[in-house]
């Protein structure tokens, strides 16, 4: 890829801004953003463009396939996978970036799912190499430490299961949040426990899911933070939706991390990782962990 070649020249010369300017990024919106939460998608695009990336949006993309795949409908989901793969690769972008660790981890899983398919295994490998979760991309690929955002408030961070355990990314969002001006992060007790979303699990097993999300909501409210942040809009829908239903007078604002990093931005504050090499791994998927 020519852009990769130019990228490496700029990288050698440590011209970070120029490096970003030649990056083509394909937006992987996720179906939840398409159907319910446009603001998360907007923040994602605005962030990437601010950092100089050229963004593209292939219209044929739909969903990573988790709702049916994780419910056991493997055969039915194959068409969903193939559609998604073809759509995301229909643009010759350098990277594919989405605002969800879980959905990106699912894209990575295509590699295993298609391992015996001569045509799609190759495509799945390309997808694996190119796709990143948003904060992972900002921190590890763009090498950004401070997005220039400001949010004068207290917040707690819910660490989503698939992002940490399947994608293996637990550092990037924390580093970026720590650099948001004015933001005070309050630790969340039992941060490692699942919030009870689990995709169709939350609808299929409401009794179990309710007990789990109640636990999580209690821990969140105990922090007394004003804002709950996560890299996963679905977890936020679940925890926030439960708090809203309980009507016990608790107040909390829900923010996807993209919205936080895109809040009150002063571009003069944007700073980069000093030694770019240790976090910057272009087109190299999971190689950093």
């Amino acid at each position: 890829m020519i852009s990769n070649y130019i990228f490496s020249i700029f990288k050698e010369a440590k011209c970070i801004q120029l490096m970003h300017a030649c990056m083509k990024v394909c937006i992987f919106s996720t179906c939840i953003v398409d159907l319910l939460y446009p603001d998360v998608g907007k923040a994602t695009v605005e962030l990437l463009q601010r950092f100089g990336c050229e963004t593209f949006f292939p219209d044929k993309q739909i969903c990573c396939g988790q709702p049916t795949y994780n419910s056991g409908y493997d055969r039915e989901t194959i068409t969903t996978f193939k559609n998604q793969l073809d759509a995301l690769l229909s643009i010759d972008a350098d990277y594919i970036v989405g605002p969800s660790g879980s959905c990106v981890a699912m894209l990575h899983e295509y590699k295993n799912i298609f391992k015996d398919d001569p045509e799609y295994s190759k495509k799945a490998q390309i997808l694996y190499d190119k796709s990143f979760e948003l904060t992972q991309f900002i921190y590890r690929v763009l090498g950004i430490l401070d997005c220039g955002a400001e949010l004068d408030d207290t917040a707690t961070f819910h660490r989503s299961c698939h992002m940490t355990r399947l994608l293996g990314e637990r550092t990037a969002p924390i580093v970026l949040l720590e650099h948001v001006k004015g933001l005070e992060l309050i630790p969340l007790h039992n941060i490692q426990l699942c919030c009870g979303f689990g995709g169709t699990f939350s609808a299929k097993e409401p009794l179990l899911s309710e007990a789990m999300v109640d636990d999580k909501a209690n821990n969140v409210l105990k922090t007394k933070a004003h804002i709950l942040i996560a890299c996963e809009q679905t977890c936020l829908m679940n925890i926030g939706g439960r708090i809203n239903r309980r009507r016990d007078g608790s107040h909390i604002t829900i923010m996807h991390i993209a919205e936080v990093l895109n809040h009150n931005v002063d571009t003069s504050r944007i700073t980069y990782v000093k030694d770019t090499d240790h976090v910057m791994v272009p087109a190299n998927g999971n190689g950093v962990f």
Partner: peptide, 25 residues
């Protein structure tokens, strides 16, 4: 399945078609 979700949590009303992410983009 819809009850499974809504019996426990409040669900957001989806945005109008012309206000969804793709239109904005």
């Amino acid at each position: 399945l819809a009850h499974g979700w809504v019996d426990v949590r409040d669900l957001a009303v989806p945005p109008k078609y012309h206000q969804n992410f793709r239109h904005w983009y």
